[in-house]
Amino acid sequence: MTEHEERKQRRLDARALRGIAHPLRMQLLDALRQRGPATASQLAERLGESSGATSYHLRQLAAHGFVEDAPEHGKGRERWWRAVDQGLVFDSADFESAGPEVRGMAEVFLHEVAGTHARELSNWLSTRGSWSGDWHQASDMSDATLRLTPAQAAELIRRMHALVDEFRGSATDADLPDSEQVRLHTHLFPIDSR
């Protein structure tokens, strides 16, 4: 797999939502993206689930094209899995005219993403004492309130994503001795100020 293939993103449609809109499936996919290929048993242990449940949901993810076999990792009958894409693109405009079932799956998906963000932030806060002072200084938990038009908000998002892509494209990051995988959450939404 080339670096570009490893980072490709998949745009969600109604069929894809049927395959991903489940909390355990989303956790399995995130685990494979963040830590690389694994077996159902390894994922079960990591996530505190039964291997039967992880096997079933991995097969469902495979049926919808989110994961695939990673045979180069297997030994004997052991089945290894890897994520196909490194990101998902959810555009609410794609589901505006969808029926109630699809809109419900979209809600499940979005709420699970929000829950994952909250769990990741909470985990950082719980474990930050085990990280160096440099990482304390390099972490951020901030918010801002701006007054923007929808067009300005879209431009801000586009520019933030472009900046993230600049850092993602740095070829030497993995070679630096103090580099670590980091998570960046951004949320931009209107609030009722009336």
Rank of each mutant, 00 (worst) to 15 (best):
E180Q: 09
R82N: 08
P37M: 03
Q86K: 05
Q27W: 03
I191P: 05
L188V: 10
L156M: 07
A106T: 10
S142P: 05
E72M: 00
A70Y: 00
S139R: 05
V89C: 11
G74D: 08
P37Y: 13
L12R: 10
M141D: 02
T186P: 03
H22L: 13
D30Y: 11
E49V: 01
G115R: 15
E180H: 08
D140F: 12
A16P: 01
A63V: 01
V84M: 09
E96S: 14
L156Y: 08
I157M: 01
S126I: 07
K75W: 03
A40R: 04
L156C: 09
L121V: 12
L146H: 07
H111E: 15
Q86N: 10
E6M: 14
D175C: 04
V164F: 02
A118T: 13
F66K: 01
S50R: 07
E5R: 15
S130L: 11
E72F: 01
A16C: 06
M160P: 00
R33G: 06
A174Y: 03
G19C: 08
R183Q: 07
E107Y: 14
I157F: 06
S92R: 09
N123D: 13
T54E: 04
R33C: 04
H57V: 00
E3M: 13
R128M: 11
T145L: 11
A21H: 06
I191L: 14
D192Q: 15
Y56L: 06
T116K: 15
